[in-house]
Write a protein that binds this DNA or RNA. Structure first.
Lengths: 229, 229
DNA sequence: AGATTGCAAGAGCAGTGCTCACTTTTGTGT
DNA sequence: ACACAAAAGTGAGCACTGCTCTTGCAATCT
């Protein structure tokens, strides 16, 4: 059945709300995102937006999903253009994350900063898009492993951790030994630790002058850590 | 000159405000911290607290400094009780950071989460206490280095990064080669990446069952990365 | 055409940060 | 001991927020 004009209008308004919300985020930061401001921008009285979005938190959820998509797309695009070597691919993906974060700090904060107070993003909506980046990272490792370019980690994996890794490996169908998968988690949190420090300016002021070079170097270290050739 | 009663009262009130603010943080999260609520708790009308704190942001700054102190103390205390080996000391420090973060997520968020919108914490007040933890981490590396228990990193340090490292080495009087210092930064952001993922529940739900063991293992990997014996 | 459904408006509530004119308290210098 | 000035506290008020509820209007379906 063809969508009725009303449905079309509704979807359009929905997209407008998300678009305006994202635009607001570019200037104010997640905590200050105002539904009333969105309503004003939309040219409508404040209570009207509640027809579309049941609360501010729900708008935030929409924006979180939107941001995850954008970030995932950015990484995928970077990987599509990247050369074949695992190190080049890792660097491309990492740079994409950092570039996106620096370009849209508030959106980045929405995903990897302080969770909004007393509000847990509905896992069913946000978990899946949130895994795209880490799956891309692990994908690089899997490819390297299959090509014989992945040094197995020295450190022994304790049993509790090993059990978790085995389960995850099965769940996602990853052709990766438990030890390597465990280092993959380090790659994940390590990368976002780096980007967060950069986006949130957590290295002291004036500590680093060559931040681009510094980032690339640190990503190289992460590559060493996971045993890329 | 002896402090006048008024100064004493003022200092006491100041401490009370910080104490109440910290208590609020335990329940609401940085963005929802309310000066009016602090005033109520203090048993005073809302405008009165402006005699002590010029704005909500200034209160946040006070709380940031307070949190840095607390975290620094926690790490120092853990290191004081830790055995001699660098790996044990690293683990002790890392666990202290994590434990503190899990116990006071909002305070942790204040330091390592999204910076409060449009408000840059005055560097002169927050930078110094913010360096305590990283200095402790680097201190572990220096001690290991002097004891001959620090493998030099393989990866070559590019010139721009090397220059920054040399400058920082001089500024803080660190007896550490530039390459090792660079890996120290990875240790820094890597540790806080791990803790942030843990405190903010960024590993998906149900992904990890043995989070304590996982953390210890990952810290071990970070130890490998910086070349601890 | 008439009934139903969806959308928007506007008033209103409780809360926020912050300012300002004012009163009360308090410490001190004469 | 008393007056005076500085500091502390008050309460009203402004502009803003999220959110609810009732009301009027318009498009859609039967």
């Amino acid at each position: 059945m063809a969508p009725t004009p009303r449905q079309l209008a509704r979807e359009h308004t929905m997209r407008e709300i998300v678009r305006i919300g994202r635009a607001q985020l570019a200037t104010v930061g997640p905590a200050d995102l105002s539904l009333r401001a969105v309503a004003r921008e939309l040219g409508v009285v404040s209570s009207a937006v509640y027809r579309y979005v049941s609360s501010r938190d729900e708008l935030l959820t929409l924006l979180i999903v939107d941001a995850y998509d954008e970030l995932g797309d950015a990484v995928d695009a970077a990987l599509a253009d990247a050369p074949d070597g695992p190190r080049d691919r890792l660097l491309a993906a990492a740079r994409a994350v950092r570039t996106w974060g620096l370009r849209a700090p508030s959106s980045y904060a929405l995903l990897y900063g302080t969770p909004v107070p007393g509000y847990a993003a509905p896992a069913d909506l946000t978990t899946q898009p949130g895994t795209r980046v880490v799956l891309a990272l692990v994908g690089i490792m899997v490819a390297a492993s299959e090509a014989g370019g992945l040094r197995p980690p020295q450190r022994e994996v304790p049993n509790g951790v090993r059990a978790d890794m085995e389960r995850i490996r099965a769940e996602f169908g990853l052709e990766l030994p438990a030890g390597a998968l465990a280092t993959g988690f380090q790659l994940w949190s390590g990368l976002f630790g780096l980007v967060s420090f950069d986006v949130f300016d957590q290295w002291g002021p004036g500590t680093l002058t060559d931040r681009d070079g510094f980032f690339d170097y640190q990503v190289g270290l992460l590559g060493d850590l996971v045993g890329l050739a």
